[in-house]
């Protein structure tokens, strides 16, 4: 569905020193500088896949997404989406894709969402019957009924995002580009959005590409993860593999029936936190079996669980290393 070969995207930006003097000088002479937003990325995504783009701010995730959507021309490399060159923005291409941006909205601010729906119906030339069926379906899935008649400006952020998703999917696109769709939403609304995206993906076998700052989004939604850092693709695979590669250690969570001395815990691994009732210990992959066996035989345990390190920590480590590949 999506083929990307050696994609590069450089921006030309005007650079100047701070201060008034420099500002005056820049009126006469403007030094330019190339910002390498994307630096040689290649990948391919099959129809119906759900892929998450991960990376710190300014890593090149959104740039890549915009190149795929046809909003930015690649500086170098070949990009094809559904057999089309995105930057040509052919009508047939545009009717197959959609873009949702958590920070920006396409709903008409002063009008109820239903007006934007009607406008998009005309623009996408959606047949009446199909339109009504889609609206009914989306209304049921996202519980939009009470929202569609209210002016957009009176909706809460979460309600607005649900309507944004609906208006972006009226034409039943085959490829969804979601740029931080859950940003600023509360936990339950994040979950609603995730469940919905997944349902849409399964119902229409649509391809989903998601960027997010919330690891939970990616963990819950995307079997495949691409990590982009400083414009390069440094990991492409399943999330558990990524975690294993970056942080091969495990966390052993011990619930104690009575307090224990620290020296009894030290042989197990590195103590991350300890109080009377609960201890978290970091253990290497290889030492895990021995540690668990030792804990079971020597400590007054109520419960023992083994977990992966928290995702946020994995990401922090990944970008701190910067060379996970």
């Amino acid at each position: 569905m999506i083929e990307v070969e050696h994609l590069r995207k450089w921006y030309r930006v005007h650079r100047r020193e701070p201060g008034l003097k420099a500002a005056l000088r820049s009126l006469l002479h403007r030094p330019y500088e190339d910002v390498k937003a994307v630096e040689d990325i290649s990948f391919s995504i099959g129809a119906g896949e759900r892929v998450g783009f991960l990376g710190p701010n300014g890593a090149g995730k959104t740039t890549t997404l915009k190149v795929l959507a046809g909003l930015l021309h690649p500086t170098e490399g070949r990009v094809a989406v559904g057999g089309f060159l995105p930057q040509e923005r052919a009508r047939e291409f545009l009717t197959q894709i959609t873009l949702v941006m958590g920070q920006k909205q396409q709903l008409l601010w002063d009008l109820p969402p239903s007006e934007t729906f009607a406008l998009n119906r005309a623009i996408y030339d959606i047949p009446r019957a199909q339109y009504e069926e889609t609206v009914a379906e989306l209304t049921a899935l996202l519980e939009l009924a009470p929202l569609l008649g209210k002016p957009t400006r009176q909706l809460s952020l979460g309600e607005r995002m649900k309507c944004e998703l609906a208006v972006a999917l009226l034409h039943r696109p085959k490829v969804l580009f979601l740029d931080e769709p859950t940003i600023g939403l509360d936990v339950s609304m994040q979950a609603t959005v995730r469940t919905f995206v997944r349902a849409y993906n399964e119902r229409f076998s649509a391809t989903v590409i998601l960027t997010s700052h919330y690891m939970e989004d990616v963990a819950a939604l995307c079997p495949r993860v691409m990590v982009i850092d400083k414009g390069r693709l440094i990991f492409d695979g399943a999330l558990p593999d990524l975690i294993r590669r970056v942080r091969p250690d495990k966390r052993v969570l011990l619930r104690l029936s009575k307090p224990v001395e620290q020296r009894d815990l030290l042989p197990l691994g590195t103590i991350i936190s300890q109080n009377d009732a609960e201890v978290i210990i970091q253990v290497s992959q290889e030492g895990l079996q021995a540690s668990v066996a030792r804990a079971l035989s020597t400590l007054p345990l109520r419960d023992l669980t083994v977990e992966d390190p928290p995702l946020e920590e994995v990401m922090r480590d990944l970008f701190a290393q910067g060379n996970a590949a």
């Binding site: 915009k66 046809g70 009508r91 545009l94 873009l99 909205q105 996408y124 030339d125």
Partner: peptide
Amino acid sequence: KGTLDFVLLKP
């Protein structure tokens, strides 16, 4: 605001 993106992606 950067919302011209939505306009440019309309068929």
